[in-house]
Write a protein that binds this DNA or RNA. Structure first.
Length: 470
RNA sequence: CGGGAUGUGGCGCAGCUUGGCUAGCGCACCUGCUUUGGGAGCAGGGGGUCGUGAGUUCGAAUCUCACCAUCCCGACCA
């Protein structure tokens, strides 16, 4: 059988490669309405794993889940001037329902600051009610002109946290805490995607926020993807919705709020951060199947050995799948699992078993080794750990190698062809930012010299990290 | 919203210039047999309002007009 390419090469045409992976790995496909997506079982399995981990980390910070309505009165959006202005171009508005025109149109939530604001105002009375730490898992709709599956879709799934605090400092601390205790650890430890954190310049700030912090990751092609954000909303929403509390001293005070979210976009980031010419490469921590046991041919001894192994690994808490679909050829099944990015494939066949062995194939580096059946359970956990760290290290090396420290706009444009540029934020004042934008280059993050997250963009000697983005 | 292109089984396309037998091909799918250690082979089979509507014509996937939709390139966003 002539060896032919299963996928478009990621080096030749990365967007086409991405489409091919979505199709061949059965992750998702387009929905009937432009910009919507149908997430298929394998893709949704990845999202569920993300959800489980993020949810646990959020709860560990003290927040609790609620559910707010999908429909929001249009008047709510209008209460915060910048917020409406920012979102109105992408709102889906329901004007007719129940067979007649509505007195007041309702919008399909593009995000829920306003409705949380409305209810937080009711729920917060006393300083004893603060901080109020809420989160919800929901779908939101933002009418997108240029949709891309997972990365930018008209409807997407996310988690949005909304919190109210007594002081600006407390709100800022909590917003930063979400970044450092939930998002970055999740992305780096579970998704194996190294993250650059920083604040957004005013031009990239969330509509209605006084400060936006973000997690940026570098993809295979050197472009940036914003994987998560955390916003300080100041008192903008608290004033608009009258979120006030009575202090210890008996005075009426206005709250400070924050909001933060990660979405199904992370699935796209996962694909584009780790993929290679054979398809997806999933980090074991998030992979729906960590190990697939491939039964090479119909044979009682082989089937028995596969089942025994699966049970043994399953008892150790490893997510294992048996592929005994011997009606399909070996090569077909092997490549299918490779496209799906399963970290370890164990091939069990009569030839191996004669020697009391099986073959372990690593997806991350395409190596194979023969291992005694009795040693498999011992080796698999270590291998999974190695794969997890290899994926992280490779992505980290790429981010490092493709980030150039430079000092002029011309150099920034040059560096953005292949990755990111770090340059003094001062260089981008007085029109520099706009000039880069003309070349589709934006400021992804502002950081301090030591890489830490600044309090605001007015600190001196900040570094701007710029590049092309999704 | 401005510029370019395309609409033909699930997907990818040919056919259109020059109108004419039953609208083809690859992949996928179904059945059977042989296979099975890197996308298997052979044989048989199912699946189509040719984007929509009108017009020209004895006859339209093909020509004309209108409409609709989609995709690619320029201003926002998790």
């Amino acid at each position: 059988m002539a060896k032919q390419n299963i996928l478009t090469s990621p080096d030749e045409n990365f967007p086409q490669w991405y489409q091919d992976v979505l199709n061949k790995a059965a992750l998702a496909e387009g929905g009937p309405v432009r910009g919507t997506m149908v997430i298929k079982p394998y893709g949704y399995g990845i999202w569920e794993a993300i959800q489980a981990d993020v949810d646990a980390r959020i709860k560990a910070t003290g927040a609790r889940n609620v559910y707010m309505p999908l429909f929001i009165p249009e008047s709510y959006l209008q209460k915060e001037a910048e917020h409406v202005e920012g979102f109105s171009p992408e709102l889906a508005v329901v004007t007719h329902a129940g067979g007649s025109e509505l007195d007041e149109p309702v919008v399909v939530r593009p995000t829920s600051e306003t409705i949380f604001g409305e209810y937080m105002a009711k729920w917060v009375q006393s300083h004893r009610d603060l901080p109020l730490l809420l989160n919800q898992w929901a779908n939101v709709v933002r009418w997108e002109l240029r949709p891309r599956t997972f990365l930018r879709t008209t409807e997407f799934l996310w988690q949005e946290g909304h919190t109210a605090h007594a002081t600006q400092q407390d709100a800022a601390d909590y917003a930063a805490r979400i970044l450092h205790e939930v998002y970055v650890p999740h992305m780096e430890q579970m998704l194996a995607v190294p993250i650059t954190v920083g604040i957004k310049p005013p031009s990239e700030r969330f509509a209605g926020a006084i400060n936006t912090m973000a997690c940026e990751a570098m993809m295979y092609d050197g472009k940036a993807l914003q994987m998560g954000t955390s916003h300080e909303l100041g008192q903008n929403f608290a004033e608009a919705f009258d979120i006030t509390y009575q202090s210890k001293e008996g005075k009426l005070e206005t709250c400070w709020t924050a909001s933060w979210g990660v979405s199904t976009r992370m699935v796209g980031g996962l694909i584009m951060a780790h993929g290679d010419e054979k398809g997806l490469r999933l980090p074991p921590s998030i992979a729906p199947h960590q190990v697939v046991i491939l039964v090479i041919r119909e044979d009682d001894a082989v089937t028995q050995a596969a089942q025994t192994l699966a049970a043994e690994l399953g008892d150790m808490g490893i997510r294992v799948e048996i592929d005994d679909n011997v009606d399909k050829s070996f090569g077909r099944r092997a490549t299918d699992w490779e496209v799906k990015g399963v970290p370890i494939r164990i091939e069990v066949g009569p030839r191996d078993l004669e020697n009391g062995e099986v073959t372990l194939a690593r997806r991350d580096n395409a190596t194979k080794q023969s291992v005694a059946v009795s040693d498999v359970a011992k080796q698999v956990p270590d291998l999974l750990d190695q794969i997890q760290s290899t994926l992280f290290d490779q992505a980290a090396k790429r981010m490092k190698d493709r980030t150039q420290t430079i000092s002029t706009l011309a150099e920034a444009i040059e560096a953005s062809q292949t990755g990111w540029a770090r340059l003094p934020w001062d260089v981008l004042q007085d029109g520099g930012e706009e000039e880069l934008k003309a070349s589709s280059i934006t400021v992804r993050a502002l950081t301090r010299q030591d890489g830490s997250v600044p309090d605001n963009e007015k600190e001196s000697d900040l570094i701007a990290i710029v590049g092309r983005s999704y």
